[in-house]
Amino acid sequence: MTTYKDKQEVIHSKIWNEEPEPDNPFAAKKCYCSGYDVYGDLLGNASWVEYLFLLLKLQKPTAEQANLLETIAVAIANPGIRDHSVRAAMNAGVGGSTAASTLMAAIAVGAGHYGGAREVYLVMELWEKCGQDLQIWEKELLNPDIDERADIWLPIEHPPGFDPHGVSCPTPVKQTLEKFSLLTRVDSNSNWLKENQNRLEEKTKLPITFTMIIATALSDLEITNEQGEILYLLLRLPGAAVHALEQKKLGWKKYPFFMDKIKFIDDHTST
């Protein structure tokens, strides 16, 4: 007998399954996430971060894992009103752009390898290469293997996870790393980083930044580079959203335009 799946293309998934309502094949009666009934069981029993962990890892987190993911989520929920990605969202807000464009702007600006999600990806890649071997870290940070082919991404201009404009490690970064070290095992990557932070900073002559400690904590959750990159984009959106809404209400007249802060240098020689 020919089934629907023999005739139609299907979407393959280990994450999600649905059963239809008897009167409508397009309306789900039951939705399952990795075997759990989302609306009949998870709802009201699983927390947001437990469900998020389940979606990523297809397994229920331990209390320690859920606690660490929740702490990561709180740490980066609002990158702060001066952060580039939040400024992008506020630019959308003051101009009265759509809500979607506000978050798209924050995602686009927060995607790069200067403080953004690509930098988290690169640090997680370093964890894969270097593990807890200080010598390999030093080699990779100071003399990285560079793919010489052109790409949509420009080459990174600083060691991933370090602030190229920094002077010393800012207090919130230290406080967050301290918290991660308390929430993870003594042999965790977060604890290794805490122990070796000074040595790495001496070598690079730069302070570590949020991308370093978040990528490290995500590696402690055994999250993949690609999952880490996308989680970083996702979890930083609340701050972008609320600051955009706030500036929308305040209006463009109260928002910086940098009217007199641009200078045109006419060095153009071509015809």
Binding site: Y4, K5, V10, K14, E18, E19, F26, D41, L42
Partner: peptide
């Protein structure tokens, strides 16, 4: 291109309780 519930080809774990 609407997709009915049956268009999901699920290969994950069996049903279980939280």
């Amino acid at each position: 291109f609407p997709l009915r519930c049956e268009a999901i080809s699920y290969s994950g774990v069996k049903k279980k309780k939280w």
